[in-house]
């Protein structure tokens, strides 16, 4: 197609909108259909449970013959996602992409990837090594990151409230939590060391 396949993309958006129980959503950024934002619910029973993960989506003029470009905007601790920039290693976003797939199926595949990491084909070697050698540490870190980055304001506000209960002014609590990446204990250290 010489131009963006607007017709196809709009049909996809309508379908995602209609199926609200799928656990994924897509919204348009600005007026252009080439830039979209997706969200994925962290799968239950994983360190990502309770998190809402935001995914940047870019579509080229060759979509659906070329895969959508997807990166995690929300920081994720996962063997197949770069902890630095959110780049994703998933076959269907590269050579295994098919025009038979859609934004919805791609996001559902990302959700499935959160449930079943593939440390043998990593995007982030550090996370992959931790996953393989210190699985419990991986779970702890992944959960901390989920709580810190993927729970939106809700998670943060709950933690601020806890610190306020301990007698810390709300503003200072929020600042400390942000500094500590959402980790309560680390935030306490920040507060008491300053």
């Amino acid at each position: 197609m010489a131009q963006l396949d607007v017709n196809r993309i709009q049909k996809e958006l309508v379908e995602i909108e209609r199926d609200k129980n799928s656990g994924v959503s897509v919204t348009i950024i600005g007026g252009q259909l080439s830039r979209l934002t997706g969200t994925i619910k962290g799968p239950i029973g994983t360190p990502y449970e309770g998190g809402i993960f935001v995914v940047d989506i870019t579509l080229t003029k060759s979509y659906p013959f070329e895969p959508p470009k997807m990166t995690f905007k929300t920081k994720v601790w996962h063997p197949n996602v770069s902890s630095a920039n959110g780049a994703i290693c998933l076959d269907i976003l590269k050579d295994q992409w098919s025009p038979a797939l859609t934004l919805k199926t791609a996001l559902l595949s990302l959700q499935a990837l959160l449930s079943t990491p593939e440390p043998d084909d990593p995007q982030d070697a550090v996370v992959a090594q931790q996953y393989l050698r210190n699985y419990q540490d991986y779970v702890t870190t992944a959960r901390n990151w989920t709580n810190a980055f993927a729970t939106g304001d809700r998670g943060l506000q709950e933690k601020v409230a806890k610190l306020v209960e301990m007698g810390i002014p709300a503003e200072a609590a929020q600042a400390a939590l942000e500094k500590a990446g959402g980790d309560e204990n680390a935030a306490l250290e920040v507060l008491f060391s300053s």
């Binding site: 902890s83 870190t141 901390n144 990446g181 680390a186």
Partner: peptide, 17 residues
């Protein structure tokens, strides 16, 4: 490996893939 965004020290960048 504790999250620590502001200081940025705890976000190890894996080898570039």
């Amino acid at each position: 490996v504790q999250p620590n965004v502001d200081q940025g020290v705890a976000v190890p960048a894996g080898p570039a893939r």
